[in-house]
Design a protein around this nucleic acid. Structure first.
Lengths: 198, 198
DNA sequence: CAGCTGACAGATTTCAATATCTGTCATTCC
DNA sequence: GGAATGACAGATATTGAAATCTGTCAGCTG
């Protein structure tokens, strides 16, 4: 169970933590468990993370960042701003839905963790709306999205699509007809962004 | 504590239940408490409601219906479809925010109850989107909202504004800037509905 | 000496015994 | 006879004592 004597690094601790969370769930995962999985004393874990909460935050950040990175590629991809916006929103929905569907228990675990909010979730959302802003700003430049304030528009789009990325709605993502609902909302928003008036 | 010998009616039981919920919260409110508040045995309560769950559902339905009724007045009010749509969405947001702000504990109590979903919440949402559909259909008739399927558009609008009526977001309703966020989302949606293309 | 350990105090969680609650129904009351 | 009661069985919640966990730190180890 104890792996060969590699140096104990924050990264290795995070991997072990993810493992322990997957096995025991958020309620029963202890830092003693994490230490045991690494073959060290729990005191050593506290050398790298000041508190259990900090450890949980770090592991949550890792998880969220994986999604951000996947989407970052779409921001500067080819295609019109409309196409990129649509692809980005679809990518976000798809990523979340996939995570929720593949391993519901792990997804539930991370949903609990994200609810123990620190600043991590807020930063993740800021990151995502930042990506959205860049797409919409490109459209503002080209005249495709005649909006006065791309950042405000990005926030509005992000909030309006919450039902398709907020984990609270995860159960609804398997219902028949969600894809049509998603398309209906996105169409409406893109038409709103594209509308010249005002 | 026992009121004068009126006949025991479902309505009186619901009033007492609301009271008990307000006092004890959702976790500790028992049907024995309700019976005691009415000065009857708990067996009598079971004559009117088959189970505790049914009683909770009924009291929740009452609470939700009060909001529906307030909004129903706006559907057939004067003004253009745009104006009525805006007023209706603002009314929904205002009603929810008011309930949440006035008595946070009671609101939290009902949030718990609505999460114990039966069919009640679904019916409430169907009711609300029905009202929305009527406004949008009026706009479709007059050419103000050139949409092919008013009911689908209504669902999209309802879902896109979830952040401003779904109780899960109640904490965000007191943050500074929510009103601007609300306006930004609603503007975007109304522009989308008004856009002739497609 | 830098990194790790393990014993410790206080906080939190678990577990099992006890108390309360839900839902039923034979009986009482008007 | 229709409505209400209260005793009852099984399910659920509460409680307090014991076990475990978190976070610290003096000392060990390589």
């Amino acid at each position: 169970m104890a792996p060969p004597t590699e140096t104990l690094t924050a990264e290795r601790i995070l991997e072990a933590t993810e493992d322990v969370l997957r096995r025991h769930g958020p309620a029963k995962a202890t830092v003693v468990d994490v230490a045991r999985a690494l073959g060290v004393s729990h005191g050593s874990v506290y050398r790298h993370f000041r508190t259990k909460a900090a450890l949980r935050e770090a592991v949550t950040k890792r998880w969220l960042d994986r999604t951000s990175q996947k989407l970052a590629g779409i921001v500067d991809a080819d295609g019109s701003p409309q196409e990129r916006l649509r692809a980005w929103l679809a990518g976000l929905f798809e990523a979340k839905r996939h995570k929720a569907g593949d391993d519901p228990e792990l997804f539930a675990t991370y949903t609990v963790l994200t609810d123990e909010v620190g600043t991590v979730v807020g930063e993740h959302i800021a990151d995502l709306t930042g990506q959205l802003t860049r797409i919409i700003a490109a459209g503002a430049g080209s005249g495709a999205f005649p909006v006065p304030d791309p950042a405000a528009a990005a926030r509005a789009v992000f909030q309006a699509t919450g039902r398709f990325h907020d984990p609270h709605y995860a159960r609804a993502w398997t219902a028949p007809g969600v894809d049509e609902e998603f398309t209906a909302v996105v169409d409406l928003l893109i038409r709103g962004l594209s509308s010249p008036s005002r």
